[in-house]
Design a protein around this nucleic acid. Structure first.
Length: 845
RNA sequence: GCGAAAGUGGCGGAAUUGGCAGACGCACCAGACUUAGGAUCUGGCGGGGAAACCCGUGGGGGUUCGAGUCCCCCCUUUCGCACCA
């Protein structure tokens, strides 16, 4: 190659299409990376990305997600781990049904064809998945095990049917779980308000595990704190007490006592009113014969609904109405006025509170407004004699004060009083200590066609009866009119609805609701270990080996959906004896979103960057590499089309360098010790430094952007000394080593190019079997270092010294420096600071 | 309102422990090569200044020989929670 002409010849041009087509075919036949074995002698590593649902198209957000997982899987594999990296598809009901209506295509066909598309795209992108363990949650095979689990849940009393107020999305035309309502709106339709409807629905008793779900969060140290906090808030545990306030007679069907929930029973002697939620059943009783009062309460209800819909329930002005009635405080027998207030929520606690203005901010505000009495019963600890202490600034909400004016409990501190008073209430039969949770049971009924049928039958004689295991799976009928009208479309299919009771043989009606698709994703990652098992959902021995998942990668949007449900499912399976692990996922990584033009990539905005187009223009490697390079993976990535061109150029530079020098380097020559020439040493050092940086980042914080930057630096360095290489200044063995290691470093990020170049370099065997390159810290070390010299903290000069020098030598050199001499003229040396091998600071006055 | 994260060139972002701010890339500018280039190579690229130098990490204070990094106050953005009794 002539020195003066670095224009690549035609055959030196990097053509990603050719390279990627060639290798994607070969990989399908090479099981190396897909050969995860049970009980291998190698350490196991289960890496998983969250399921995509088959909407038909991948976008760059997916590519980024899978690029992270794939890089990790390849890295762990190269480091000798037995890697499980499976891939599957989530059944997502709504898009399938919408598409069915729009295109008149059955959901099954629509889903399967989209899965085929996505699978082809994934393969084209070169992700190393174990396709033999593919799981598709919307196929009969999976339905069968969903139903099997559902019956187990039912047998355990963890699945039950109940009529209650539920969330209803008019656009989805189905019920939603609490977790699927975001600020009053549907999680799938950000502009659609969720309505409340009174319906009979199936629930899963997630609250049985509320305590454990909360407690075990502390063990999940490999999870982002943010997700743990979100789950803690969602579970919303609070300790308190229930106390009955007597109405002195029945008002109506709701009875004659008001049960309030309080976390501060120690303040009960300071209660000056009782507050009810407008929707409290007793309010209905009290207003039954009072139209005027009823109307006012209706206004309060309307206000609450409006505020809830607007998402600012915390903002509405507190106000209320006196009902004209009184309830007796069981501790001091005082008659307290009963109010109805717009800030009391029916769905928390009991929907009734005791109002203690002196010790609660909201109560204080309310009492001021309506001139209700304020009575201090808690004072700061420190002495009853002190005037200012006896009269603390109100409201005084401290929870470790001293109880006063509280009969026999006076003199206790708050924590003692909490216990003593709850005990007292319990002993006297008007209350008890209790724990409430914000977490509610999981509503799993959906009025959709496309979902797992709930395997239950209704018999006039035997009531609710589970479908016998031998009759599973209950399959969806083929021809169904999907209307999204509200009732399940399955209800219109008599062949489906009409069944026989397995107990009495009489006629039975089949449940027509289907399961929430989050049931599917609650355990899909277990099924991967035994994707084709037709006798059980999985083999417990496999689970014992592979679980918990070592690394799970997905978006934070699942923090309180999928990630709570799947934890619940694991605990339920553990109690059934199916699995031994308490938690499904050891480490969780939440990657950032891909943003385009300042907005989340979405079809509605029309700003979706198609991976197909990127792959066609720049290749899969470039698309993947860019998605990792442009930002650290945990941060949002602002997609710029121009950015990928730089990556494309970089890959071309790597390709051309190796095409030019592969022949002059022979691996057979053994590289020993320090390289002879300065140029050679320079390359050698840079190589080992780069290997160190990339390795450290894989072990540490996964800032793949800086890994890739480091590899780019290495390549720039190689180009910088290319003329010297051509002149033979670099030994062939070193040149071979550099190229080989460069290719290995690139393998987790750009596997296609890496494979091609590995072959070009005559690498032994497939790159899939090559180990991760090891760096030598001694060779990574600099021999000479440049030390900045500061004077009074400002950079004034630099001195070059051998790397292993001692302080006196540096000091001597520094004071010999011309700039330093000039600066010191007429000044006095105050201090000499030397940070070994880092910096010199000379303080003058 | 409470809590968390973040704020660095024209842009995306580096700087892991208090120690040379701006790695790497994009965009831009100049040059080389070329019949040609959606190609390649080389160099430049925070602001001011002819230069010496000065200024510079959202703003204001502080600690320190030394602060993007630590402390205090404030501003902005994003996310989470929000009458939770």
């Amino acid at each position: 190659m002539p020195q003066d002409d670095k224009t690549p010849a035609r055959d030196e041009r990097y053509d990603p299409q050719r390279v990627e087509t060639k290798w994607s075919e070969q990989w399908q036949q090479d099981p190396a990376l897909y050969a995860a074995e049970l009980n291998s002698t190698k350490p196991k590593y289960y890496v998983l990305e969250m399921l995509p649902y088959p909407s038909g198209a991948l976008h760059m957000g997916h590519v980024r997600n899978y690029s992270i997982g794939d890089a990790l899987a390849r890295y762990m594999w190269m480091n000798g781990y037995n890697v499980l990296h499976p891939m599957g598809w989530d059944s997502f009901g709504l898009p399938a049904e919408n598409a069915a209506i729009k295109n008149n295509t059955p959901p099954r066909e629509w889903t399967l064809s989209n899965i085929a598309n996505m699978k082809a795209q994934m393969k084209r992108l070169g992700f190393a998945y174990d396709w033999s363990r593919e799981v598709t949650t919307c196929l009969p095979d999976y339905y069968r095990w969903n139903q099997w689990f559902f019956i187990k849940l039912f047998d355990q009393g963890l699945a039950y049917r109940k009529k209650s107020k539920v969330n209803w999305c008019p656009k989805c035309a189905t019920v939603l779980a609490n977790e699927q309502v975001v600020g009053g709106y549907c999680w799938r339709h950000e502009d659609t308000l969720v309505e409340q409807r009174e319906l009979e629905q199936w629930f899963l008793r997630t609250t049985k595990y509320a305590e454990e779900l909360l407690r075990d969060l502390d063990k999940l140290e490999g999870w982002p704190e943010k997700v743990r906090t979100m789950q803690r808030n969602w579970i919303g545990r609070s300790e308190g007490a229930l106390v009955d306030f007597d109405l002195g007679g029945t008002v109506g069907p709701a009875g004659s006592t008001i049960t309030v929930f309080t976390t501060r029973i120690d303040t009960i002697f300071g209660a000056t009113s009782v507050q009810l939620a407008p929707e409290h059943p007793l309010v209905a009783d009290m207003t039954a014969n009072n139209a005027d009062l009823r109307a006012k309460v209706e206004t309060l209800i309307a206000e609450q609904r409006k505020a809830r819909e607007a998402g600012d329930i915390g903002e509405i002005e507190k106000h209320g109405i006196f009902t004209g009635r009184y309830a007796k405080n069981p501790f001091n027998h005082e008659a307290l006025p009963i109010w109805v207030a717009n800030y009391i929520l029916m769905d928390y606690g009991t929907g009734a509170i005791m109002s203690v203005p002196a010790h609660d901010e909201r109560d204080y505000e309310f009492a001021k407004k309506y001139k209700l009495p304020v009575r201090v019963v808690i004072i700061p600890t420190g002495g009853e004699s002190d005037e200012t202490v006896m009269d603390p600034p109100l409201p005084f909400a401290s929870d470790d004060g001293l109880v006063v004016n509280s009969g026999q409990f006076s003199g206790l501190n708050s924590p003692e009083a909490l216990k003593a008073m709850a005990d007292f209430a319990e002993k006297n039969g008007f209350g008890k200590a209790t724990v409430t949770f914000r977490l509610k049971d999981w509503g799993v009924s959906r009025q959709r066609y496309w979902g797992t049928p709930i395997p239950m039958l209704y018999c006039a004689k035997d009531g609710i009866v589970a479908v016998p295991e031998k009759d599973l799976p209950v399959l969806l009928p083929e021809h169904v009119d999907i209307t999204l009208t509200g009732a399940s479309p399955l209800a219109n299919v008599p062949e489906f609805v009409n069944a026989t009771c397995p107990k009495c043989g009489g006629p039975a009606r089949r449940e027509t609701d289907t399961m929430d698709t989050f049931v599917d994703s609650s355990w899909y990652f277990y099924r991967y270990t035994n994707a084709h098992n037709d006798r059980a959902p999985f083999d417990s021995n496999e689970i014992a080996y592979w679980f918990p998942i070592d690394q799970y990668i997905g978006g934070v949007e699942h923090a309180i959906l999928h990630l709570i449900y799947s934890r619940f499912w694991t605990k339920f399976m553990r109690d059934l004896g199916l699995v031994k692990n308490d938690e499904p996922v050891e480490r969780l990584f939440t990657q950032g979103m891909v943003i385009k033009d300042g907005a989340k990539m979405s079809k509605n905005l029309g700003n979706v960057v198609s991976p197909d187009e990127m792959v066609a223009r720049y290749g899969a490697d470039a698309a993947r590499l860019y998605s990792l390079f442009a930002a650290p993976p945990d941060r949002d990535l602002d997609w710029k089309d121009s950015g990928i061109e730089g990556i494309h150029r970089f890959l071309g530079r790597v390709y051309r360098f190796i095409m030019r020098h592969a022949n002059s380097a022979h691996e057979s020559m053994v590289e020993t010790g320090l390289a002879p020439s300065p140029e050679a040493r320079q390359i050698q050092r840079k190589l080992h430094q780069t290997m160190k940086r990339v390795t450290d980042d894989f072990k540490g914080r996964w800032h793949f952007n800086t890994c890739i930057a480091a590899i780019m630096e290495l390549v720039n360095e190689l180009y910088g000394v290319e003329e010297k290489i051509a002149q033979g200044a670099v030994p062939a063995a070193l040149l071979a080593r550099v190229q080989r290691d460069l290719v290995l470093l690139l393998a987790p990020f750009a596997p296609y190019l890496a494979h091609e170049l590995w072959e070009t370099l005559g690498g032994k065997g497939s790159l899939l079997r090559a180990p991760w390159p090891k760096y030598d810290p001694a060779l990574a070390k600099e021999e000479e270092i440049e030390i900045p010299v500061q004077i009074n903290g400002k950079l004034r000069s630099r001195i070059v010294v051998p790397a292993d020098v001692d302080e006196p030598f540096v000091k001597e050199r520094a004071f010999a420096d011309e700039k330093v001499i000039t600066a010191m003229a007429g000044k006095q040396l105050v201090k000499w600071i030397y940070v070994p091998a880092k910096l010199v600071n000379i303080v003058l006055r």
